[in-house]
Design a protein around this nucleic acid. Structure first.
Lengths: 159, 159
DNA sequence: GACAATCTTGACGAAAAAATAATGTTTTGA
DNA sequence: TCAAAACATTATTTTTTCGTCAAGATTGTC
């Protein structure tokens, strides 16, 4: 279970924009340089994020990218969903209830785990906004710690 | 953020063995057929799981695979760690504190998110044993629901 | 001991993901 | 109006991951 390159860098690019003073914007070369990726790669990511409505782009000289919505309103779960190309709906069809083309119809032992994990991650990400990623990391840490402290009180079955 | 094919099918193979009556075993072709994968593929997965000490293999006629440890003792987190080839330690070095070859030294806005997510998943998986995946799924669901109910009481910052 | 069933392991090929390249479009300003 | 700067979009290449194949090693049976 890992974060894909697209998820990671797409998220990073948005954080860059969120850290900008009001009204400012960044060009592709600027974004690329700050993230250590190529301009072409940054361009593709920004194109995705633009299509999804997270950023606003202006062409021509003096152009660039800026956030289209307030950073406080953008939850990480939304971002990941776009950058991940709907993994939730593709994976073995178990999320839509269709279950075609999968040999594990009816007796799939790990389905609750997969579904549970995705829900767990999605839920955690839905509680973090872009704004929280700029500057102080304490609120993000606090959120995860809250979950952890609960987890540790639960013991595995049969041990 | 998704589960890799290796993680998914490796886990499935172990569930098959865990569901076996005491003393029984499965051959490679049997495992492959039940999981809808090729024998070669199953062979590679079982080889990994054998190296890691999860299963015991016997060669020759009447050979096959069986669990080396009680299913009640095997946590999913251990399994994923093996099948995932230590993603935690590779990803951008941030987990070891080294941070070489990464441009985001010192001001990596998403590091707490990545670390937090991995810890969240690892923690959840450490609370599920192989035994829980056989038969009744209720205990697995219950674990995830517990986390969810907590999560929903927390509101994002600035909203 | 020979043979068949079974696991082992490294090399190879196919598929998916990521990164890059290439081409086109829009805007600004001289 | 033209050129430069910047985004938009599709295609190509590269890299990584996944899956397969084949030859080898081990064990049980007759």
């Amino acid at each position: 279970m890992k974060i894909s390159a697209q998820e990671e860098y797409g998220l990073r690019c948005l954080v860059q924009l969120a850290a900008l003073p009001d009204g400012a914007s960044l060009t592709l070369p600027q974004i690329a340089e700050r993230e250590g990726i190529s301009t072409a790669n940054a361009g593709k990511l920004m194109w995705l994020l633009n299509k999804a409505g997270f950023v606003h782009s202006t062409r021509g000289t003096k152009g660039g990218y800026s956030l289209q919505r307030p950073a406080e309103d953008i939850r990480l779960s939304e971002i990941i969903k776009v950058l991940d190309e709907d993994v939730l709906n593709k994976h073995c069809g178990s999320y839509t209830g269709v279950l075609d083309s999968c040999v594990h119809n009816g007796d799939c032992g790990i389905r609750p785990v997969i579904i549970g994990l995705h829900a767990l991650v999605e839920n955690a990400l839905s509680q973090i906004t872009l704004a929280q990623l700029v500057g102080n990391e304490s609120s993000v840490d606090a959120m995860f710690h809250k979950v952890h402290s609960i987890h540790r009180t639960v013991e595995p079955h049969g041990v």
